[in-house]
Design a protein around this nucleic acid. Structure first.
Lengths: 352, 352
DNA sequence: GAAAATAATACAATCGATTGTATTACATAT
DNA sequence: ATATGTAATACAATCGATTGTATTATTTTC
């Protein structure tokens, strides 16, 4: 099944293929009447421009590469949705790849995207990405790179869209303190990942503000899966007396912890108050509903994509070291409100 | 920032670019020693193959286009994850597009993917896709197409991966009946969408088996959003007495309904039992946990992608009209069990 | 009506890799 | 040493579109 080319259109009309090309691109170098004839013939022959050829010639693929740890995470899939929407409007396609938290895979993906000559890359790094040689290679080779959410410290040659994790962590922790918690555990992931480092920092700042002693034994590092939360909660209950609050750096671990606590009949929030991070859809649905920090994935995706598109238009200046920081929003729900508040409860049952 | 080409490698080594190309492709027409020299020089010059050029020449893009209504739906994002994983292993990239339930957008996306010369398309159609001229055009132009989940009736020229929706609908409804429900409402979407038609069919079959009168006033057609479920439940309570069960064709509407019913103090499942469809993550977390029908998105994605990959390898025979039907699995949880069963509850709280 | 200016189109190179065919180099056989 | 065969590489066309330059039509100007 061979496709029609501009040459066949040209031959059919007895004109040159360059004229056909210009006509199809609506160049003012072609007489309106000729344009019309070309367009009609193209239609008639079922012509579809071969973007491979076009891209090769123009040295531009009109494609953006996106790398996330896992597509099926709600936060990331909504980020992707925001990216796709923005890219689509601007006439770009998006190639989606998942690193699955594996740096080697991340490395391969990047070289693959480079080979495919994507115009730019949007990415959220894996938890293991410390050595960033494959990333520095990107802009050494002139490939624009914008981080969103998970980024790498010290990589200032690119743009970033991040949320103010310090503030998010601070507010969640402060809220727990204000609700009366005095011994607050913190679930987090390896602290060399910027976002977890910052959420942890916010946690520390809140403790300090209220003169609560920072106890490093209360900080649990894991991969923050639901299972991790479940077993860490079990550990806390068995080994660590008097914990009256948990701030988890993501919702999954928080939900896992809630599952365990509910299974042994601990009262949430009366005995242990809980706050998560990310506002996953399940957080609104679980009972008690989970207090969390909202970070709009769709919005982050849009902003990151726009940052890249700006770069395409206006060159280096805009992206270079530009950081867009989104303000997180604490969403207070039932898992943390020791003094229950009927009105607020009603509101927070509602639709997300 | 210009990239190195095979010609520069060739010049540097004083050999021809065709030899370089063959060396890079590990052809046996090149002496091992020359190969080694080429590879080293390529490394030294930081060469990355330009896939645009390669693809143009080979008339193959090693790319698969994927179209889903919405990326951020868990079912679809997990499908995409399965597709990406399978494609990646086989050396393919995936371009992801969302139709947003808009046929016109779907149409544009398809022509865009064709222009980009993707090797094949995997898609789940919009709810509005009835006229399928843009789809028939696909294989008229020789573009392999495989449907997953939402497909179009009568399009037998392509492959499909679907779940047995009739069976799923039947089992969910039968389960409700066995729990004692006698007046079961059904939430669904326009019945010209195959999957909803089939779930509805399963619903009818179950009613018939147990000699329950089919009442068309109990079948509510909407877009099946959470909001739809909420308002439909309200409608039922206000206008339609004696409904003791709801089978919703997706989990969102079921959850919306539960929210309403809980807000007015209706007991689930005692007064109204509920079953959904899809096994969204929230369905396991909501209280009472939602009985639903599982359709593994990841698995569907893998199968659909493999079907396409088979086609690439073995030609037309395999895809043509090949339908892979996945068996759905009824997951019984608390929202439907009138006689509560402690063991089963424990199991179903567990990790998804 | 001829010269000048401009519009419209044709020519030809190019993007970077691939691949069928031709040529050269080298080894083996006679 | 010459013929024969094969291994290794070079040549050249090609994929389909784009684009700078050259050429031909057409219009404008005097």
């Amino acid at each position: 099944m061979k496709k029609t080319t501009i040459h066949e259109i040209a031959k059919a009309l007895g004109i040159d293929s360059s004229t056909v090309s210009r006509a199809l691109n609506d160049s003012e170098r072609v007489k309106p009447r000729t344009k019309k004839r070309v367009l009609e013939k193209a239609q008639e022959l079922g012509y579809t421009r071969n973007m491979l050829a076009s891209n090769l010639r123009r040295n531009k693929s009109n494609t953006i590469g996106v790398i996330v740890p896992r597509i099926s995470r709600y936060f990331f899939s909504s980020t992707i949705a925001g990216i796709e929407e923005t890219a689509y409007k601007a006439g770009y396609s998006v190639i989606i790849c998942q690193s699955r938290e594996d740096v080697n895979r991340e490395r391969k993906i990047i070289s693959n995207l480079m080979a495919n000559r994507v115009d730019g890359i949007l990415m959220s790094v894996t938890m293991e990405t410390k050595d960033s040689s494959h990333l520095t290679e990107c802009f050494e080779k002139g490939m624009p790179l914008v981080f969103f959410d998970r980024h790498v410290e010290g990589m200032n040659q690119t743009g970033k869209v991040v949320i103010d994790d310090v503030k998010g962590g601070f507010e969640a922790t402060e809220h727990l303190i204000k609700q009366g918690c005095r011994k607050i555990a913190h679930f987090t992931a390896p602290l060399d990942v910027e976002i977890y480092k910052n959420r942890h920092k916010g946690y520390c700042m809140a403790l300090e503000k209220y003169s609560i002693h920072y106890d490093k034994n209360l900080v649990y590092i894991s991969t923050l899966l639901k299972e991790d939360g479940y077993f860490l909660a079990e550990k806390i209950v068995n080994e660590c007396d008097g914990v009256d609050g948990i701030f988890s750096a993501n919702d999954f671990a928080a939900i896992g912890a809630m599952n365990f606590l509910k299974s042994i009949g601990k009262k949430i929030p009366e005995e242990i108050a809980i706050a998560g991070f990310s506002n996953e859809p399940t957080s609104a649905v679980i009972e008690p509903s989970l207090t969390t920090v909202d970070q709009s994935g769709t919005e982050i995706g849009r902003l990151a994509c726009n940052l890249l598109l700006d770069y395409f238009k206006n060159g280096n200046t805009l992206v270079n070291n530009k950081t867009i920081m989104i303000q997180p929003k604490l969403i207070v729900r039932d898992s943390s409100q020791k003094k229950s508040n009927f009105k607020e409860m009603r509101l927070n049952i509602g639709f997300k």
